[in-house]
Computed example of a mutant assay.
Amino acid sequence: MKQLYPFLAYRPFLWLLLIVNILGTAYGYYWYDGQLEQTPSIFLAFVPDSPTASLFFVFVLIAFLWGKNWPLVEALAIVTLIKYGIWAVVMNLLVLAVTGDLGWLGWMLVGSHFAMAVQGLLYAPFYRIKWWHLAAASVWTLHNDVIDYVFFMMPRYEVLNLYMQEIGYFTFWLSIASIFITWYFCVRPGSRQYDL
């Protein structure tokens, strides 16, 4: 794994990843357009979960290209990339299980969201997250769960409406797992750190 780090820090690759994430983020916000039009303004920041996660990572990549670390943004990025990357994969596979069909767009969402989670983890050794950064990211993430499943602002998968309680329960524990994974790879004593 250590042999991969020079490639991950290679500036042309960082630029390529930045462009891909900007395009993916823009598409993600476009995907939420209809739901955002019907969302009360107080909840707007908490509705487009996946594009906001990739937007955090866009800022992480910009900081890396400037030779800097923005630990709070890194914490927000890794926790939300893991959480919403895995969440969207599971939701789309659940759509497949319920309907028997996913279509090319669904499989594209599976692949792109899986890549979100992977990129968040791959760059973990380059982050400089402290416990208070992770605490702030945890509050954001768990607060988002409350907004989604108490105020019903979650991403809309209408074929899954019958399973909202189970999805909310799964999402809460996925948040906890993402926070723990971030602690394990970035914050715990002895976690590996590499310079860009």
Rank of each mutant, 00 (worst) to 15 (best):
W70N: 12
L94A: 11
W183D: 05
A9F: 06
D101L: 09
L65I: 03
Y10A: 08
A77N: 09
L122T: 07
L160R: 09
W183Q: 12
I147S: 00
Q38K: 15
I22F: 11
L105G: 12
F64L: 15
N69S: 15
L134P: 08
L14S: 00
V47S: 06
W183G: 02
L61P: 03
V98Y: 06
D33P: 00
V58N: 07
I181R: 02
I176M: 15
Y123T: 03
R156Y: 02
M164A: 03
D101V: 12
V79D: 04
S50R: 01
I82W: 11
P48N: 10
A9E: 05
H113G: 07
P6R: 06
N69Q: 10
W140P: 04
D195F: 13
S138K: 08
F46N: 07
R188T: 04
V89Q: 03
L44D: 11
V20P: 00
K68I: 02
F152R: 13
I62F: 08
G111M: 09
M91T: 10
K2R: 14
Y27M: 13
I78Y: 00
W183M: 10
L76S: 00
T182W: 03
L23W: 11
L81W: 03
L160W: 09
I42K: 11
Y163R: 01
V95T: 15
Y184N: 08
N21Y: 13
R156L: 14
S178P: 05
A135W: 10
L105Y: 09
L196G: 07
L122C: 12
A26I: 15
L109N: 13
I167N: 11
G85I: 05
I19R: 04
F114V: 06
A77P: 05
G100A: 03
Y10F: 15
E74C: 00
Y184E: 11
A26K: 09
P125C: 09
W173L: 10
L76C: 07
A97Y: 11
D148I: 07
T80F: 05
A136G: 10
P51D: 08
L109K: 10
T39E: 06
C186L: 06
P6D: 06
Y30P: 03
L8K: 12
Y184F: 14
K83N: 08
F172S: 05
Y29P: 01
F170M: 14
K2V: 14
W31G: 01
